[in-house]
Each structure stands twice: as structure tokens, then as C-alpha cells.
Design a protein around this nucleic acid. Structure first.
Lengths: 349, 349
DNA sequence: CTCCTGGACGGTAACGTTTCCAACGTTTTA
DNA sequence: TAAAACGTTGGAAACGTTACCGTCCAGGAG
């Protein structure tokens, strides 16, 4: 009873040749009509368009992209964990902008090693994408130099290649956070740092500058470098630092995920130092103590990157590599406005 | 002074022909080596591989996909707002699975009308993707029937076409939520419904079934249909229902975003009905009252969908359309365990 | 009236790959 | 020893589109 399975009708999709035959015109004419229709008599164009509608013709983008010079109408976006709202916002925004210009976005996700990133990028390049948006990992990106594809880096620059970069004012953000805490009299501020990404270094620099400007010395034992950038690591570090004989009166968490860990530890310990986070996050205002953060317009980051890349890809923009920096602003919600002495107010057991 | 701009080195990427010349073999041989190298003498294959390395050759995926039958090595994923962690999880998981098989994922986002969805899908099809994963909007998807591309629907089925579908047990989830509240003596349970997606209807059905099984009648005035699926709408609706003379003692929010609105309203009103949400969300356990939710493995949803689609695309799976349903489970955190009389405990002003 | 110009259109060569077929040399079989 | 079978290889066609180059016809200029 091994009758052949009725697999699929598998209707062959009509090509330009079919359209040409149907409309009684040449192949070139159909192509001209599809691409704006210059140099075609109005009446002819009508006939072609009618044939297109009747057959339900749709241009084969793959064949189109095969022609030399014609890159595909796709942009590539390479980033880390989409589950991180930060990355998700970038993805969404760039998708939106690309879509408006008829571009699709091919995603490459890389949670892994820098080697995995390189592989993912080359995969994408072999798909003839018109441009690359990359939230780069550490590691050298010089291999992109000869790829013949415009590249825009997002959130942080890459080494080994000079290209456009769209980022936020990390140093300014770090400065604002520290200034805010310092201005309230905090002098022992811990800063919790995710693994040494470029961004984190800048935030730390801003943090230090604010201290210098305020004439307060940074206690280096309160500059805490985490081995990993997740909430668990931050929770552990917070617990440790708060149990020291001389704990900080304020904590600056350099990442949205880190804030979560910090708050978790503080909740357990019943201690209430001031807390400021970097990057806003959903529900930040609904936590037991609403969380003060330094925020920036992440979606705008994605939009600017996509727009810039589209301009580069079309050749409309031939300026030297740009460096776009978006501002950060403080959002006061409560956790960052606790005075220094409140840390001593440990709730009685 | 109009010297020509040093636009780009624009190194022509080597093709198989270049490799063939370099290795002193024919074009076909190179192709055979690149595709697994069957039917090529080992020594010849070595030479070809050496040439590939020296030239840094990489196969042009676009040209490859042009051949008839050979779809591209890309899957398309069409979904709503990536900013919603639910969608983001699906995207991340499917990306991961696709990547393991060397497939890229092209994203199509559709916040707009059903018409926008159709356009996005057709765009994607014109890119010769090997398969489509769609989180469908309302509207007829019959137009996909003749597209000649395998389709897997995610989270909810679509009308007008019979295709694979991977979803969670919405009815079971709704039932579990209601059972949990009913078992604690709640008899007036409000259910807040996002606009009539398929999923929400199922959750409501489970909600009703649990009531019937418990012998409790559903007060239809507590079945609240929102005009929009966002937190604001839920906040408004919650405020209204809680201010009625006979407010509910429990609320079931049918969506993660709705929970936010519900809690916001309750916070303002200083009222404490039991609350259960559908779908888990970050920080749910850190809110003033940790939120009890009915959760399922969303990432698994994406993984299963991607795997199924890959099997369909490769022709490895020719079974009739599958229907995969993932279970839901209750996560008790506190908000759903408040007894009925606690609602009366309005905090004194 | 002839020549020229220019717009509209048809035909065809690419693009880089895969696949098929033919050709070749070697080994096995009759 | 001849024929057949097999494995390895080269060459060419095809995929669907765009770009270029002619051809054709109409109309204006000389």
C-alpha cells in the first residue's frame, strides 16, 4: 500500500517570462515596468501590470540579488541575547526602519564565543546582505574590512576596523549617576561592573570623573568587577559588599540585569542603600522601591543605525565614518534618592 | 579639486571559477567538494580545499538559492512586537535551532494591520525562504496555500489554511488559573481579556469550565473584554471593576502585559484581590506582592516550531499537519494565594 | 524627400551556483 | 582479449533577473 503521497500541488510561481508572454511584450519591458516603468509607454505598462496581477507575479528577489552590484534588499543584524530587552528594542526599531524601505532584516544571534560571532557574520555576508548592523563582541573585526559590505556598529565600537558607530553616552551616563548620588552626600558608592565591555569601561570612567569633580575619592574596593554579566553574579557581589564592616551607602549597577541581582540581595539582607541602575527596564517603577535609572532612547539607537546603514548601502551617504552618540538622562524614582544615613537604618529583625 | 573619492577597495569576492582555476580542476569538481565532496578523489579534494583556503572563498548563497528546488537556507519568522518578552523568547529560541542547522532567520515584524502582515509575508516569500514561522494575526491566511513553502504557525492557528501549529495549552492554563482561585473559596473572579485572539478565547473557555466543574456560576459582568491588549487598557478596566459596589475578590489577567495594568490599578486603589497572570514575566517575583502566574515554556515553543519547520523544509517530515500543544503550570508566588476576604481588607487611609 | 534623432521595445548576455551528461581511464567480467 | 562497468572529471545548461545593445518606427530638420 505504498501509494505515493500527495505531497504538494507545488504550483510553479510565475516568472517575468510568463508575464511577458501573457502581456505580449518582451522580457526587458516587464523588467522596466517592475522597476518603476521608465521608458515604457503608458498603455504598454498597463498591459504588463494587468498580466502581473492576473498571474500573481512577484519578483524573485534572489535572482535579482544575483546580478553584479545589486546587493539583496536585506540587512543583517548581529546581536546577543534577544531576550534582553535592550537588544530586543534595537531589533524592533531597526526592523521597523528597514521595513519602511522594503528591506528585510536577517538576524544572527550570538551568545557564544567571538569565533561564533565571526562565523555568523560570514554566513550573513555569504547571503549577500546589503549591509551589516553589529553589536560587537570583543575580538578583532578586521576581517570585515574587505567584505565589501557597509557596516554599522551599534552600542559599542569594534577594534580593527573603522566604521560607523551609533551608541549612547556611556561616560555621561556614568557621570550623571555618580553625580546624583554624590550630590546627596553619598561618599561610599559601590559600582558593579559587568565583564569588561567597552560600554562598561566608559560608564566607570564617568563615575570616576564625577568623583574627582566632587572631590571625593573612589574607594577601589567598591569597584566590583563581575566575572559574568548576569543577575546572579550581581546578587552574590552585592551580598558580599554589603556584609563588609564598612558597606557602601549607595550602589550603581552598570546594567539592567545587574540591578535585578542587586535588589534581590538587598531584599534578603534588609538593607537599603541608594540604588541607581543603567538602562531603564519594564516594571522598574512598580518594585517595592521604584528604581532610579540612567536611561537613553534605545529604540532610537536602532533607528539611527538602520537609517545610517540604508544610506550607506544605497550609496547616498559617502561621508567618512560617523560617530553618533545619544544622550542619557536620569529618571528619579526613589531608590536613588535615599540619603546616606538610610543605609544604617537596617530594619530591626 | 574634484578628485575621485577613494570609495572602497571593493575586492571582488572569489567565485568557484577562481577556485577551479587555482586548483587546476573543473568547475563541477569544486562544487562537489564544497557540497560534501562525494565522488571526488581524495587527492583532488585536497587541492581544491587548499585553493579555497588560499583565496578565502565562500559560497555565494544567493546564487545557490537560484537553482530550482533549492530554496535558500533561511527561515522567515513573522511576529508582532519583539519588545514583548513572549515574542522575543520565541525569536531567540528559533534562531538558535535554525542556526544549528546553518539556517539564518529573516524577521518580519508586524505591529500593523492584517494587510501589513500579508505584505510582509509575501515579501519574505519573494526572498525564497525555505519556510515560514508565523505568529498569525487575525485574518485569512489562505493566500499561503499556493506559496509552495512550508508554514508552521506559532502560538495560535490561522484560518484558511491547514498547517502545522505549535502552541500552549491555553484552555488548560485558563482552567488551572480558575481552579486555583476557586479552590481557595473565590466565587467572584474577574477575567480580563485582551482583544479576541484565539488564545484568549481558549483561556476564557478553560476559565468557564473550571467554574462549571466547581459549581460556581460565572458573573458575566466580570468577564471584561478590553479594546486593546496593553497595560493601560487593563489598568482602566481594573479600576472600573474594583470600584463597583460588588467588586471581584480575584482577578485573572489573561496576558503578561495586562497583569502590569492590573497591578498598577490595584496599587492606586489600595485593594488586594487575588491576582493570577497568564505567562510568566521577569521580576514577577520581586514585586511588592510576588505574582502568581500560569506559565509555559515559551522558548520550547520556538524550538519546536523551528525544528518542525526545518524537517518540513528538508522533506524529512511528510506527515499530515501536526498540532503540538505544550503544557501550562501554575507558579505560586503569593498574589494568587490571597483568600477571598482579603479583598475587603482595604488599607485604611 | 531624405536623413537624422530619439523614444519604445525585443533580444541576449551576464551574475555564480548546481546538476546533468559526456568523456576518459581504469578495473572487472565474459 | 574485448567488452562492459565503474569511478572520476570537465563542460555546459539552467535558474530569474537586470543591463546593455540593437532595431524599429515616428516625427522633425535640412
Amino acid at each position: 500500500m505504498s501509494e505515493t503521497f500527495p505531497t504538494k500541488p507545488e504550483v510553479a510561481r510565475p516568472t517575468m517570462i510568463d508575464v511577458a508572454r501573457r502581456a505580449g511584450v518582451g522580457l526587458g519591458t516587464v523588467s522596466r515596468v517592475v522597476n518603476g516603468g521608465h521608458g515604457v509607454r503608458d498603455e504598454t505598462a498597463q498591459r504588463v501590470r494587468a498580466a502581473i496581477d492576473e498571474l500573481g507575479f512577484q519578483r524573485n528577489e534572489v535572482a535579482r540579488a544575483l546580478r553584479p552590484g545589486k546587493k539583496s534588499t536585506s540587512l543583517a543584524l548581529v546581536l546577543g541575547d534577544l531576550t534582553n530587552p535592550f537588544y530586543a528594542s534595537i531589533a524592533k526599531a531597526s526592523l521597523e526602519i528597514a521595513g519602511q524601505s522594503g528591506f528585510a532584516v536577517v538576524l544572527g544571534s550570538v551568545d557564544e564565543d567571538p569565533e561564533g560571532e565571526k562565523r555568523a557574520i560570514q554566513e550573513l555576508v555569504s547571503r549577500q546582505v546589503a549591509g551589516l548592523m553589529i553589536v560587537p563582541d570583543q575580538g578583532d573585526h578586521a576581517f570585515l574590512e574587505g567584505a565589501g559590505v557597509p557596516v554599522v556598529f551599534v552600542d559599542r565600537p569594534a577594534t580593527g576596523i573603522e566604521a560607523d558607530i551609533v551608541m549612547v553616552d556611556n561616560e555621561g551616563g556614568g557621570r550623571i549617576a555618580a553625580e546624583h548620588l554624590l550630590s546627596q552626600g553619598h561618599e561610599r558608592i559601590a559600582i558593579i561592573l559587568a565583564p569588561s565591555y567597552y560600554t562598561i569601561g566608559r560608564r566607570l570612567r564617568g563615575f570616576r570623573r564625577a568623583h574627582r569633580a566632587a572631590g571625593v575619592e573612589v574607594d577601589e574596593s567598591l569597584v566590583i568587577q563581575l566575572p559574568e554579566g548576569n543577575a546572579e553574579a550581581a546578587e552574590k557581589a552585592t551580598r558580599e559588599v554589603m556584609l563588609r564592616p564598612d558597606p557602601p551607602t549607595a550602589i550603581f549597577a552598570s546594567t539592567n540585569f545587574l540591578v535585578e541581582g542587586v535588589l534581590r540581595a538587598l531584599g534578603e539582607l534588609d538593607q537599603d542603600p541608594a540604588v541607581v541602575g543603567f538602562d531603564d527596564f519594564r516594571l522598574a517603577d512598580m518594585l517595592p522601591t521604584p528604581v532610579t535609572v540612567v536611561a537613553s532612547d534605545i529604540a532610537e539607537l536602532g533607528r539611527r543605525a538602520a537609517r545610517l546603514l540604508l544610506d550607506r548601502a544605497s550609496g547616498a551617504d559617502t561621508r567618512p565614518p560617523q560617530r553618533i552618540v545619544l544622550p542619557c538622562a536620569l529618571i528619579e524614582r526613589g531608590s536613588g534618592e535615599r540619603p546616606p544615613d538610610s543605609a544604617a537604618n537596617r530594619n530591626p529583625r
